[in-house]
Design a protein around this nucleic acid. Sequence first.
DNA 1: CTCCCCTGTGTAACAATGTCACAAACACTC
DNA 2: GAGTGTTTGTGACATTGTTACACAGGGGAG
Lengths: 213, 213
Amino acid sequence: MGVIQRDQFLEIFPFFQKASQPLVENILSFSRYQKLPGKMLVKLEGDQCQDFVLMLSGEKRVFKMGGSAREITLYEIGLGDICVLNATCILSNTKLLANAATTTETEVLLLPARHFLDLIAKYEEMRAFVHLHINSSLTAIMALISEIVFGKLDERLINYLIEKFENGQLKKTHDQISKDLGTSREVISRLLKDFERQGLLSLSRNVIKLKNF
Amino acid sequence: MGVIQRDQFLEIFPFFQKASQPLVENILSFSRYQKLPGKMLVKLEGDQCQDFVLMLSGEKRVFKMGGSAREITLYEIGLGDICVLNATCILSNTKLLANAATTTETEVLLLPARHFLDLIAKYEEMRAFVHLHINSSLTAIMALISEIVFGKLDERLINYLIEKFENGQLKKTHDQISKDLGTSREVISRLLKDFERQGLLSLSRNVIKLKNF
DNA sequence: CTCCCCTGTGTAACAATGTCACAAACACTC
DNA sequence: GAGTGTTTGTGACATTGTTACACAGGGGAG
């Protein structure tokens, strides 16, 4: 993709198709393009955000780290998304509240904080865009809290697998899964083994296959 | 308090002391005052928000409900606060993501959504005000997730008690505490009894007293 | 090719937390 | 003082988290 063209941008962010064109011109002219490799730690909790990040392709996970190597994924963002924590970090000039890492190779557009704030001040559509995305991430976070507090782990794991399976299989380690769900590797191994014994799955190294696919 | 005066408002929301005065006049003239009794359910998940709420006095808790009578408090707001979920609900014109109830008698200022959006559009300071508060609630929510996922319940309970104790005592039932911490009443009773056996507390109906106070 | 090493998985035993069922203690009304 | 609703106590069991190892498989070094 290299440098992003206006048409490509509008395809990825259809919201701006109805927005005033000077806004789009401004976003494009003030931003710079960046490509990031997969599995790269991009931001750490406590960092400042210099730029507002617009996702062009790929995927990032935003997560919290706990002691003893445990983690939990708060939400994932992909093509056409922005990140609440990144946005509020800039909007309130405070420090980042979580970590971010790419899961796949990722392309982003980086809009410097100063220009981002200018555009927020100037364009109603820019505010609407940001607020809509803030809301959708908040929705995800609220749902996550309910799941963690009230949900059962076996159901959460089942839902996770259903969501992530592609062509009846998932190429992840138990450790990665545990870090998405916020539990420990042993617990995931135990549950998956139970599922296997029930004849739902077949397990092998780095891959989980759905039976009867 | 009855009808709110400009001076009182500025004392409760010192942020606006440095803001342009027409903004303050607008907030005051468009808003209406409301007094709410304690322990009243104010908003339900899924509701729409007609008004932007500014807290003048008292306290509300914002919480999620799960099955089987369990709840968890997401955060509390008091004098000088606003509520993220209320704000984003209006800003993105979506439905409320959690429930809200007063814990004590509460006075609020209600700014109709339409006027709130106008003021957000017009005044940089209004945006800064909202974004600052959004950030502080988000901070609380992120900390909560870490505590739930990585923390131990006995430590969480200890911290809760320390925070809530007044004059060495706390007037709450085990049930109320469990709904703040997101666990079940039995678990709280068990832990408190342990603390009592360790000689830290003394328990009686509706009140927990700190030993050696 | 074989050995070694690293990563990923399996599992037992125990600790912490959640659920269910019920009993007992207390405060209040009649 | 008996009856009633709320609050607390507790045992038994289910689920989830932790600790400590064993073992399997695959890739690279030799």
